[in-house]
Design a protein around this nucleic acid. Structure first.
Length: 522
DNA sequence: GTAGGGTTAG
């Protein structure tokens, strides 16, 4: 008991190991070896801040391994908890350890099931989660609030809202603020932001996490104005926004192009940076047109991870800085950070915007073969766009024929745009148009491009035919626009809106550069 | 022991 107390006062792995050595040399550890080792294991899991997995896990595993076989339920729980909480988290290993516990017929306790459910929840393993649910009932834990919240979390993460509600509402059983927050997240996660907001409105006590959960829900469903309104409201009622709320608010600034608002949030973050915040800031600056601010901030902050690298690579790519984007891709690998599907999307966009066809073919070939990153539809779409732009229509069609899945609007849009810009084969253009209209029947853009291709070929009868079929089908022209908030743009907006009505395509840029200006495309 | 956050083409 006293040894455990001593350990609880230590706050680093080094001190724990020193205490371990002292206990061993004084012979204390030989008196009650299992208890001593378990205390040490517990202390590792309680360290704050928790050391990274690479440091804490080997020591924890050696402690676990030195326990008399088959160790205890408590020791299993502690190691599972460490596997789930140390970065990066290892939910698979956690589940393996839980199954070892069961295999060795050690009795799972009130802590074991919430841990195993948390692992299943992170891995979205709904069937396994259901099996654990059933087992936990057989062990008589149905009234445990922790267990029930873990179940709500499982079902919420897996978008099994009926089950989540069922656990939440069950006969006379207690729920708390965690139950509410978890179900709010479940609704938002399933895209039902209105139910999330309703539950938030009716819950008896809200905490910081309740606010952050709804704000994130709004942000992720594109309701950024509502998100920022709630962000202000949370502060008005006395809650300081924590990192999660700040990240969501920044994401909304990025989506809305609110550069000044984003800057103000950056100011209040100051030096308290972490990878989540840095990613959101880099993305916000990039999306608001301030790519230099994005890159400078990225360069000067050390706390980057895969997400942050992706944000800067994609940001540079979208701004047309293909060469620089690819340089950052090299730097990412040199820094030992693994690229993923988003990285390769950025890389392919960089190639596409800079016309690097050969490089794109190389990256597209290597992403699976060398980097073990699976090709997804979005990568094919990007390749189609790139090949179409460069006039390699036949190659794009071959790629599409070899795809394991059906093409989407990006894939066929790339082909059609390629045909338009390179006087492509009319049959191919018609095939692409047919696929596009199948995907989106009222798409006026498709009709207009096809009409344009016919016009280029002088086939005026076909142009007229398409125009009249558009009229017959009442196809409306759709207007797309993107904007960046800048004072001089605000002054111009009335004129620009007039321009939209006049069907004029505008590309305005500050000092002639499109990237930091405003673009309206019909 | 249970709860919320970041990057994805135009």
């Amino acid at each position: 008991m006293h040894f455990a107390y001593l350990l609880s006062r230590l706050d680093s792995l080094r001190e724990l190991k020193a205490a371990h050595a002292a206990a061993a040399t004084t012979g204390f550890a030989f008196l009650r070896p299992a208890a001593t080792i378990t205390s040490l294991l517990q202390s590792v899991t309680l360290l704050r801040p928790l050391p990274p997995k690479a440091l804490s896990l080997p020591y924890a595993l050696s402690l676990f391994g030195s326990l008399p076989h088959p160790a205890s339920t408590l020791a299993h729980n502690l190691l599972i908890r460490l596997l789930l909480s140390a970065a990066p988290s290892s939910p698979f290993s956690a589940l393996r350890l839980f199954s070892r516990l069961r295999r060795l017929s050690l009795p799972p306790d009130l802590h074991s099931f919430p841990l195993a459910l948390s692992a299943s929840s992170r891995l979205r393993l709904l069937p396994l989660g259901r099996a654990l649910h059933a087992q936990s009932l057989r062990f008589g834990f149905s009234r445990s609030l922790f267990l029930r919240n873990a179940l709500i979390s499982l079902y919420s993460s897996c978008a099994a809202l009926i089950d989540a509600e069922h656990v939440f509402l069950e006969k006379n059983l207690a729920i708390d603020v965690v139950s509410y927050n978890t179900l709010i997240h479940g609704y938002a996660n399933a895209g039902d932001i209105n139910s999330a907001r309703h539950l938030f409105d009716v819950m008896p006590h809200r905490d910081q996490i309740s606010w952050g959960t709804v704000i994130a829900g709004y942000s992720r469903s594109g309701r950024c104005v509502d998100a920022l309104r709630l962000f202000d409201e949370m502060q008005a009622v006395g809650f300081e926004p924590d990192n999660a709320a700040l990240v969501s608010a920044l994401s909304c600034c990025a989506q809305l192009g609110l550069l000044e608002r984003g800057r103000a949030i950056h100011d209040r973050i100051g030096k308290a940076m972490n990878a989540h915040l840095l990613t959101a800031l880099v993305d916000m600056y990039a999306k608001c047109g301030a790519i230099n601010a994005a890159v400078n901030l990225f360069d000067e902050c050390p706390c980057k991870n895969q997400f942050t690298w992706n944000a800067v690579i994609v940001g540079l790519a979208m701004h047309g800085h293909g060469v620089l984007s690819l340089e950052y891709f090299d730097k990412m690998q040199a820094a030992g950070v693994r690229p993923d599907g988003v990285t390769f999307l950025g890389v392919l966009v960089a190639c596409s915007h800079s016309g690097f066809v050969e490089a794109a073919r190389k990256f597209f070939g290597e992403m699976e073969a060398v980097h073990a990153v699976p090709r997804e539809l979005k990568h094919y779409g990007c390749m189609s766009d790139l090949l179409g732009r460069a006039g390699f229509i036949g190659e794009a069609m071959e790629m599409i024929e070899g795809m394991p899945v059906k093409g989407d609007a990006y894939v066929w849009g790339g082909v059609l745009a390629g045909c338009r810009n390179h006087r492509g084969n009319m049959d191919v253009a018609e095939i692409a148009a047919r696929h596009l209209l199948e995907l989106n029947p009222g798409d006026s853009g498709v009709y207009l491009i096809v009409a344009g291709i016919y016009a280029d070929a002088g086939r005026w009868a076909d142009v007229a035919r398409i125009r009249s079929s558009m009229d017959a089908m009442k196809v409306k022209r759709n207007v797309a626009l993107s904007f960046v908030q800048q004072p001089w743009v605000m002054a111009l907006s009335r004129r620009l809106l007039g321009a939209i009505r006049d069907n004029i395509q505008l590309h305005l840029g500050e000092k002639g550069r499109l990237k930091s200006g405003l673009k309206l495309v019909m």
